[in-house]
């Protein structure tokens, strides 16, 4: 295993400085953002950004298009909300329940879906997630159409009051950074290299002796668990969990965020989520339905703009000069 990986080792890049500056500037912006923006908006953005990054781990780095990630996002929101409200668990444990639940769901759906490839994989995940939607519609603990309302945010580690929106914001930011760091670690590990090789050429990965199915399933479960992290935190931010988060429209939304930001780029989904969430907020007060815009953006992206915002930047002359690399 080590032999092949030595060959595949990413080439050393000179202009690490520019990238470090970008990273530091980005972090500083996120730290200072609550001074300029409404915190709940920012928290929503970060939750969706983490959701999209987790989704991208599967689509961008393993080449699997899941059309059912709403099940993990909305499912985790329900689990966390239930654990915190009904069982009285502290927020950190409640989120852990959400993550575990999403990972469990991911294991079941993933196990079934990886039995088929490509286009069928997308249809199977969509159908199974829809099945979970109907389950949530009828199950007792989800409270049907009402959803789980007035979920307490509680005290983090027993002493940080999360009902204060500033505290909550930095908690969400912390979770986001940890989540993205985990994804970064995964895609830069030997395991992540094998995922990329599956994306590039599945048959060759098989012939090299990798049990592709296990790797796919592992990637699927990890993506589901990280999606659950985003969903659980979202339930605490908004203090409710409803059917909207498990519907197929939500699965479509996260695909759009990833596509718009840049499939297979680490921070692309952050930009995609930012744009989509801003657009939704902007259109929320008008009569004009968001779905028309969403649909049109989808069509334009697929026809003309497949690299996404960050992908196009990486591929531009400036991006290359700064040492970014984006293969497609």
């Amino acid at each position: 295993m080590t032999l092949t990986l030595d060959i595949d080792k990413p080439r050393e890049k000179k202009p690490v400085v520019a990238q470090t500056i970008f990273l530091a500037a980005g972090l500083a912006l996120l730290m200072l953002a609550p001074l300029f923006f409404y915190p709940v908006f920012l928290m929503k953005l970060l939750c969706f950004a983490l959701f999209a990054c987790a989704f991208n781990l599967l689509l961008g780095y393993t080449g699997l298009l899941s059309f059912g990630h709403a099940a993990f996002f909305g499912g985790a929101a329900y689990f966390t909300a239930h654990a915190v409200k009904e069982w009285g668990l502290p927020p950190e444990l409640g989120i852990l329940v959400g993550v575990a639940g999403a990972a469990f769901l991911g294991a079941i759906i993933g196990y079934l879906a990886i039995r088929r490839q490509g286009i069928y994989f997308a249809m199977i995940t969509l159908a199974l997630a829809q099945m979970f939607y109907f389950f949530c519609l009828q199950a007792e603990f989800t409270k049907g159409e009402d959803g789980i309302q007035s979920v307490p945010r509680g005290h983090l580690f027993g002493f940080i009051d999360l009902s204060q929106s500033t505290n909550m914001y930095y908690f969400v930011l912390g979770v986001f950074i940890i989540g993205v760091a985990i994804i970064w670690r995964i895609i830069h590990s030997p395991f992540g290299m094998i995922l990329k090789s599956i994306r590039e050429n599945e048959t060759r990965a098989v012939s090299l002796g990798y049990s592709v199915r296990n790797y796919k399933l592992a990637a699927f479960v990890m993506s589901a668990a990280l999606t659950g992290l985003a969903g659980g935190v979202k339930a605490l931010v908004f203090q409710f969990a409803t059917l909207t988060d498990v519907g197929w429209q939500m699965s479509g939304e996260v695909i759009l965020m990833t596509l718009l930001g840049g499939i297979g780029t680490l921070i692309g989904p952050l930009f995609g989520a930012g744009l989509v969430v801003t657009l939704q907020n902007y259109l929320a007060t008008s009569e004009f339905p968001v779905t028309i815009i969403t649909g049109l953006v989808f069509m334009v992206c697929v026809l003309l703009f497949r690299r996404g915002i960050v992908g196009e930047f990486y591929n531009s002359r400036l991006g290359r000069k700064l040492g970014f690399e984006h293969r497609h």
């Binding site: 298009l65 286009i119 997308a122 695909i255 779905t291 028309i292 969403t294 649909g295 989808f298 992206c301």
Partner: peptide
């Protein structure tokens, strides 16, 4: 699939 999904939404 993604294109026709967008078309359907529109």
């Amino acid at each position: 699939l993604l294109f026709t999904f967008g078309l359907a939404l529109t």
